[in-house]
């Protein structure tokens, strides 16, 4: 097996899926959540955070490039694996899943697709080609990112969209985290697994934290 054959083998593809997913989780999702939480502390802190983020442009661009690579690898591998699995499964007329198969696991391609749609919308909403109002902060003029987020989520349909898609993130993570560890060869037991429990709790915690922002913004 050469490198290409190894990476495109069934286990190799799963390893690429797991690695690209974990890169996005560790380098993007966690810091992004940390930043988002600052929204709850009011306009000054959130706008200051956004302004500081702008000063870290080289690092931000580095992470963005890594994200584009990870998303591409993740999607290409996900599509390849899903299509191969559809073919390999063959039609079974009467098969019943056991309780072992979680809804999150069943819905991985669906929640993954939803997350992709969400990312595109999210970038269009807040990043790409969006003119931002200026606001004074400690004697400097900065982008009023807080005001932009607030205005967005005052619209009920936008708020509901964001919250709904965070449910997809939660579902995706709850299977993804524990599954990636098993793929790396770290035994995740079938019953009573603390890793499975931790995976679910982290997923609920993260999706919940992300979902709180639009809800709080809607109420404010």
């Amino acid at each position: 097996m050469n490198v290409k054959q190894t990476l495109l083998s069934s286990i190799g593809q799963k390893l690429l899926l797991a690695t690209s997913g974990l890169v996005m989780f560790l380098l993007f999702l966690i810091p992004h959540m940390g930043g988002n939480i600052l929204f709850l502390f009011g306009p000054d802190i959130f706008n200051s955070y956004a302004a500081h983020l702008h000063q870290l442009v080289p690092i931000v661009i580095g992470i963005e490039v890594l994200m584009i690579v990870s998303i591409t690898v993740h999607m290409v591998m996900a599509v390849r694996v899903t299509l191969a699995n559809r073919t390999a499964h063959d039609k079974r007329f009467t098969q019943k899943s056991s309780q072992e198969r979680s809804l999150a696991a069943k819905l991985m391609p669906v929640s993954g697709g939803m997350i992709f749609i969400f990312i595109v919308k999210h970038l269009l909403d807040f990043t790409l080609g969006v003119a931002k109002d200026q606001i004074a902060l400690n004697g400097h003029m900065v982008n009023d990112v807080y005001g932009m987020v607030l205005a967005k989520f005052q619209q009920p349909d936008q708020m509901v969209f964001y919250v709904l898609f965070m449910v997809a993130v939660g579902f995706h993570l709850s299977h993804a985290l524990q599954s990636s560890l098993q793929t790396y060869g770290l035994y995740v037991p079938r019953e009573g697994s603390k890793i499975k429990l931790a995976s679910t709790l982290v997923a609920i915690g993260m999706a919940g934290t992300f979902a709180i922002i639009p809800i709080v913004a809607f109420i404010r």
Binding site: S10, I11, L15, A84, E100, R101, S102, Q178, Y184, R190
Partner: peptide, 30 residues
């Protein structure tokens, strides 16, 4: 097909083969 760690196999196995072996296979492969 590819393994998606849903563990239906271990439920079905009449000999109780555990998914611990799949983790070992992944380690061996890596």
């Amino acid at each position: 097909g590819n393994c998606s760690n849903e563990y239906e196999c271990a439920v079905a196995c009449p000999k109780g083969i555990d998914v611990k072996n799949i983790a070992r296979l992944n380690r061996e492969f890596i």
